[in-house]
Computed example of a mutant assay.
Amino acid sequence: MSLRKSLLALTWIPVVYTFTNHVYQPYQIRGSSMSPTFNPGTDSTTKDIVLVSKLKVKETSFTRGDVIMFRSPENPEKILTKRVVGLQGDRVRPKSPYPKAQTVVPRNHLWVEGDNAFHSIDSNNFGPVSQGLVVGKVVTILWPLSRFGKDILGGRDARELDPKDMLVKLIGEI
C-alpha cells in the first residue's frame, strides 16, 4: 500500500513542476526596496511571500502600478521585485544617479522603481528594463497570513504628464 501511495505521489511531481514554472509560483521577497508594500515591519526576520503569475508573461501588457519580478540587467542570477512606473513611449524624470534629467522609455521596455526610494536599486541605476527579462507579475501576498490578499496597488509614478493628460486628471478629480 505505501509503495502504491509513493508511486502516486511521484506522478504529481511533473505536474507541480510545470505549474510552478509556467503558471503560478510563490516567491519570498527579500530586502526593503518595496517597503511598505512588502516587508513593512522593522523585524528583519519577517519576509513576505507573494504569489507570482507566470502565465503568458511574454504576451502580457503591463500597466503603471503593476508589481513585477524580473531578472536584474546587471546580474541575471538575481531576481528583483519593482513597480512599473513607465511604459514604452513614456517620458520619465529619473532620479539620481541616472545620468539624464529626462528620458523616453524605449519600445518593449519598462521603467521600474522600488516603493522605498532610499533603499532601491532600480531603473534610476540601470535604466529601462527589457520586457524579455520579466519573470512574472505579483498577484497577491500569501504570507504572513495577517496580510494575506492585501492590496499591492499604489506606489510612485515617475511619468511626466503631458498638459492634456494633466487636464484630464484634473477634470476627473472634480
Rank of each mutant, 00 (worst) to 15 (best):
M1S: 13
K5T: 09
L7I: 15
A9S: 14
A9F: 13
T11W: 00
I13A: 10
P14N: 07
V15P: 01
T20K: 09
N21I: 00
H22M: 00
Y24D: 04
Y27G: 01
Y27M: 12
G31N: 03
S32K: 14
S32L: 12
S35Y: 05
S35H: 10
S35F: 04
P36M: 03
T37Q: 04
P40E: 05
T42K: 13
T42E: 14
T42I: 11
T46K: 14
I49Q: 08
V50K: 02
V57Q: 09
K58R: 13
E59R: 10
S61K: 14
R64M: 03
D66V: 05
V67T: 12
F70V: 01
S72K: 06
E74P: 00
E74T: 13
N75A: 09
N75K: 11
L80Y: 15
L80I: 12
K82W: 07
V84A: 10
G86S: 05
L87M: 08
L87H: 08
Q88M: 12
R91M: 12
R93L: 07
K95R: 12
S96L: 09
S96N: 11
Y98V: 02
Y98D: 03
P99F: 08
P99Q: 09
N108G: 01
D115C: 05
N116K: 04
S120A: 12
D122W: 06
D122K: 06
N125G: 00
V129F: 02
S130K: 10
V135T: 10
K137F: 09
K137P: 02
V138I: 12
V139H: 10
L142A: 05
L142E: 04
W143R: 06
S146E: 15
I152Q: 07
G155E: 06
A158P: 00
A158D: 14
R159C: 01
E160D: 05
L161Y: 11
L170K: 11
I171A: 15
I174V: 13
